[in-house]
Simulated scan of single mutants.
Amino acid sequence: MKMAVYGAGSLGTILGALLTKNGYDIDLIDVNEAHVKALNEKGAKVIGGMDLVQPVKALTPDQMTEHYDLMFYLTKSTYDGSALPYITKWLKPNGILVTGQNGMPEQNLNDVIGKERVVGQITGWGATYVEPGVSKLTSPADLMIFEIGEQDGQITERLKMISDILSHAGTAHMVTNLIGMRWAKWTSNCCFSGMSAIVAGPFGDVLDNPHAIKCSAYIMNESMAIAKAAGVTVEIFQGADFANLAFTTEKELNAAIPKLIESEPHRNIRTGMLYDIEAGRYPEIDTTYNGMQCKMGYKYGVPTPVNAQVMTLVHAMAAGKLKIDPSNVDLIVLPKLPTE
Score class of each variant (00 low, 15 high):
Q101P: 05
P140N: 13
E264R: 13
H266N: 03
A316C: 05
S216K: 04
L52V: 15
F203R: 11
D241Y: 02
Y275R: 07
Q151W: 15
Q293L: 15
N290A: 01
C191F: 03
P93R: 12
V118H: 07
D241S: 04
D142E: 14
E340L: 14
H35W: 12
G114F: 09
T138D: 01
L137A: 09
S167G: 11
L97M: 07
G153V: 06
W186G: 00
A240C: 11
N110C: 13
V118K: 07
A212P: 05
Y275S: 11
R182G: 00
K21P: 00
L18E: 12
N254R: 07
L245M: 14
K37A: 15
I26E: 05
D325E: 08
E340Y: 13
G16A: 10
G114V: 07
A200V: 13
I162M: 06
E222Y: 01
E284S: 01
A197L: 07
N40F: 12
K251C: 04
E222G: 02
S167Q: 09
T156L: 08
M292S: 10
E264K: 12
A256V: 04
Y275H: 12
D241T: 02
G124I: 11
V130E: 08
P105F: 14
A319F: 01
V306L: 05
S193G: 02
H67W: 08
I122V: 13
M220Y: 09
F242N: 00
V53T: 15
E278C: 02
I277V: 13
V302K: 03
F146A: 04
P335F: 03
V302E: 01
E147V: 15
W183I: 02
K2W: 03
V5D: 02
M71S: 03
L70A: 08
G301M: 04
K57V: 15
L109E: 05
S10Q: 02
R117H: 11
T60K: 11
A141I: 14
A318Q: 01
T13Y: 09
K160G: 13
N244L: 10
P105C: 14
N94E: 15
K259S: 10
K115D: 09
G23V: 13
A240L: 09
I285C: 02
M296C: 02
V130H: 03
G133P: 04
G120D: 03
V306W: 05
K259C: 04
K45R: 15
K45Y: 07
D208P: 06
K89I: 12
M104Y: 14
V310Q: 07
G16V: 03
T304Q: 07
I165T: 12
I226S: 00
E252I: 01
F247N: 05
I145P: 02
G153L: 08
L15V: 07
I219P: 04
A217L: 03
V134E: 05
A169M: 09
T123M: 14
Y289M: 13
C215A: 15
E252C: 09
A212L: 06
G100C: 06
N94Y: 12
T312W: 08
G280W: 04
E147F: 15
P55R: 11
G170Q: 09
N328P: 00
H173D: 03
V333K: 15
P61I: 14
T99Q: 08
E150P: 04
